[in-house]
């Protein structure tokens, strides 16, 4: 559905996108995860025709060159900034963006009503957008891109600076869109969002893709082992046998406290349970995409 091949873009001496290539299947939610300045927004801007790339190509639903208006017809873009007219009402904003996307008459009216409902703004449809809270603006910012029911959605950090309630509403909307078979590219620097929403994730830094895979595979490849800490009622009689049964390299015993690292935490917990030990507490620290990024770049996502 989306093909990006050897994409590159420079702004003077700064390389924003460096030979980026990936493809997104129909119905897939694809994440671009990286810190600020990694090149995510530049990539989105090229995909939606706002920027002309210095090199490489983009294909959207089989059509190349998104600088052409007809190529953008199947595209819905949720920009990172709140691109709304604060001086006019939510309904007037939706009507305007609907017009821009070719909707008129009854169809426009129905879609505006549906989008107001989706954003939870039906009661406030006549209020000026400038009077809205940050979360309300974010929700409206999102549904303005859904008016024309696009096949492809480019969501550029759609939850920046929103309250938990609005964030959950936006997640619900995205999951609903996923279930409807939309093809989505989702950029974020929140690893929890990528883990929750994305089928595959590209880890991006300095305009390059460091790795691209499913969340599980990325964590398995780059996340390192999980940390398990268990307090038992009686210490194990034979630590060496327990270490072998858990298939771990080493096991630390401190009084009644057991500590070890394992790449397969679920299997290790099952083996512990079968060993006959009785537990008081168990604490498991699994790996996440933050660890993946840290291991790939030596930096944290929000450094």
């Amino acid at each position: 559905m989306i093909e990006v091949t050897n994409l590159s873009k420079r702004f003077g001496a700064i390389v924003a996108v460096d030979d980026l290539s990936f493809s997104v299947q129909r119905g897939e939610t694809f994440g671009l995860l990286g810190p600020n300045g990694a090149g995510k927004t530049t990539t989105i801007s090229i995909l939606c025709g706002l920027l002309r790339p210095d090199g490489g190509s983009v294909s959207l639903a089989g059509k190349t060159d998104p600088m052409r208006p007809e190529v953008r017809a199947s595209l819905g873009v949720v920009p990172q900034t709140l691109a709304l007219y604060g001086e006019i009402s939510a309904q007037a904003n939706l009507e305007f963006f609907g017009h821009i996307n070719g909707l008129t008459g009854r169809q426009l009216k129905d879609r505006v009503a549906a989008c107001l409902e989706t954003a939870g703004l039906t009661q406030r449809h006549k209020s000026r957008v400038s009077t809205f809270s940050g979360g309300m603006k974010r929700r409206l910012n999102m549904v303005c891109s859904l008016l024309h029911d696009p096949d492809i959605l480019l969501l550029d950090e759609p939850t920046v600076g929103v309250d938990p309630q609005s964030r959950n509403l936006i997640f619900d909307n995205i999951e609903q869109l996923k279930s409807q078979g939309r093809t989505i590219i989702y950029t974020t620097h929140y690893m929890e969002e990528a883990e929750r929403l994305c089928d595959r994730v590209a880890i991006v830094d300095h305009g390059k893709i460091l790795d691209l895979d499913t969340v599980e595979n990325l964590m398995s490849k780059h996340g390192g082992p999980s940390h398990i800490e268990a307090e038992v009622e009686q210490p194990p009689a034979n630590v060496k046998d327990l270490t072998q049964s858990l298939k771990v390299e080493s096991l630390d015993l401190d009084g009644t406290m057991l500590r070890f690292q394992t790449p397969e935490p679920m299997q290790s917990l099952a083996a512990l349970n079968q060993s006959g030990l009785r537990f008081r507490t168990i604490k498991v620290e699994t790996t996440n995409l933050e660890d993946v990024f840290l291991n790939l770049t030596g930096r944290r996502l929000r450094d």
């Binding site: 025709g49 208006p69 595209l75 873009v77 920009p79 900034t81 691109a83 007219y85 996307n101 070719g102």
Partner: peptide, 14 residues
């Protein structure tokens, strides 16, 4: 500056 111009430019219009 607010991004609305870019948003309009993203639409399928010349």
């Amino acid at each position: 500056m607010s991004g609305t111009f870019a948003r309009v430019c993203i639409g399928p219009i010349g």
